[in-house]
Write a protein that binds this DNA or RNA. Structure first.
Length: 421
DNA sequence: TCTGGGGTCCTAGGACCC
DNA sequence: TCTGGGGTCCTAGGACCC
């Protein structure tokens, strides 16, 4: 038996923790570069602001209704998310963090009233962290997702829905549109509706073998899960990450090789740190840059991939790839709007043997150097110490994504802490 | 003027093997 | 006319997720 605990309008709720005055007020959070709405309060949804909608398209609505608008503050959201996970660990020894605002709990050892237990989770999280959540309970993860979805939609559930009873489950799934099922996106729901499968219950009753032939093995698993058969168990939960990506849209188009170098170097610094935090090494790196997808001028995009001679987590090695990549990617008189880097072929450092013909003679010194870099930046703030190719803060401000409406780092920075007078 | 970022998994098809 | 059978591995691209 699983419980899925999911934050309500998570990013907006995080902002409201420190802005209780916005409790009933239409509020949205924007994507990087202040481009799209990626979280909306119920009041903002009611105004017709869609998920992922570009801000400029709703400018009038925002002004007319005095909507509170925030730039994304992922430091804050990540910290509150960690506090929620910490709270949830007191309810089950087995918690699978699925995303920044969702966790699955294994409830197999619990034999009390699960609805009461779900309410206790909600109340504790609300009291300790300040974020409202909903809880869906069911024998499979797909059904727990469905239960959570319905708990959010129907207020009389008071935020907790237990679908362990098969009869109740049938009724609930009949109320749910097939495109709200976990794993059924735009394309699949379009095809499903063409063959008359409109609700989650229709899908649950479909023939899994037949549907596997027509679609894929994922469709089969989804159907079996909806019918109550556990296919995505906690044991099969994913292991370590397979890629590290860092990319940004630029606040202003980048046209010079020097600025593109700074941006790519900056991304490599961030990705390298993430890699080391997770104790991983990368065997391959791709760097890319491209113009705007939406501009009238012809699209230009180019990438460069380098297989590293040895798997590494050394930022300097990635910077060499940036230099080589620039030669391939850069084109004069081009308005670059986005660039990024991707590390893959990741292996765990512990399980990696160095090559017989290793060129890294000073490996332990390099490891110490990277450790030192990370410690200084952790202690004195990001960008305290970095390679020169990254440029100065002032240089970076030219292309850094816009985020003019960002709230403070209330929980992670001493100088941003709230004062109570 | 203005359109996010970071992930996972599956499949088909090509290259190559005996 | 006719052209085996059975595999593996890799990659690009699609679909999905939050």
């Amino acid at each position: 038996m699983y419980a899925l605990v999911d934050g309500n309008n998570f990013f907006v709720s995080c902002e409201r923790v420190f802005r209780p005055d916005l409790a009933q007020h239409p509020t949205i959070v924007l994507s990087n570069n202040d481009g799209c709405a990626i979280a909306r309060s119920p009041e903002a949804k009611a105004l017709g602001i869609a998920m992922g909608q570009p801000v400029y398209q709703v400018k009038d609505i925002l002004q007319q209704h005095n909507v509170a608008v925030f730039s994304a503050n992922f430091i804050l959201y990540g910290d509150l998310s960690a506090r929620i996970v910490h709270t949830l660990r007191s309810f089950s020894p087995h918690v699978h963090v699925y995303s920044i605002d969702e966790s699955f709990l294994d409830l197999s050892g619990y034999d009390g009233d699960r609805t009461v237990y779900g309410q206790a989770m909600r109340q504790k999280i609300l009291k300790w962290v300040g974020v409202p959540t909903c809880v869906g309970i069911a024998p499979t993860k797909t059904l727990a997702k469905a239960a959570n979805h319905l708990a959010k939609r129907y207020p009389h559930t008071q935020g907790v829905l237990d679908l362990s009873d098969p009869t109740r489950r049938q009724k609930a799934l009949a109320l749910m549109d097939v495109d709200d099922v976990w794993g059924i996106g735009r394309k699949l729901s379009f095809s499903l509706k063409l063959e008359g499968i409109k609700t989650a219950l229709d899908l649950a009753n479909a023939n899994p073998t037949h549907m596997r032939k027509r679609y894929s093995v994922m469709m089969e698993r989804t159907i079996r899960e909806l019918a109550g058969q556990d296919c995505f168990s906690m044991e099969s939960a994913p292991g370590s990450r397979k890629t590290v990506i860092c990319s940004r849209s630029f606040g202003e188009p980048v046209t010079s090789a020097a600025q593109l170098r700074q941006a790519l170097s900056f991304f490599v610094h961030r990705a390298g740190r993430k890699l080391r935090e997770d104790g991983l090494l990368a065997g391959c790196i791709t760097v890319y840059a491209r113009t705007s997808q939406f501009a009238k001028e012809p699209f230009y995009g180019e990438s460069y991939t380098l297989n590293l001679p040895e798997a590494t987590d050394d930022t300097a090695a990635f910077l060499q790839a940036v230099e080589a990549g620039l030669q391939h990617i850069f084109r004069p008189n081009t308005n670059f709007k986005k660039a990024g880097i991707c590390l893959f072929d990741l292996t765990e450092r512990q399980h990696t043997q160095s090559s017989l013909f290793s060129t890294a003679r000073n490996l332990s010194e390099r490891i110490n150097l990277m450790g030192c870099l990370d410690r200084l930046n952790r202690r004195y703030g990001d960008n305290t110490l970095f390679y020169g190719s990254t440029g100065t803060q002032k240089d970076r401000n030219v292309w850094m994504p816009k985020s003019t409406l960002r709230s403070a780092a209330y929980t992670t920075n001493w100088s941003d802490i709230r004062k109570v007078i």
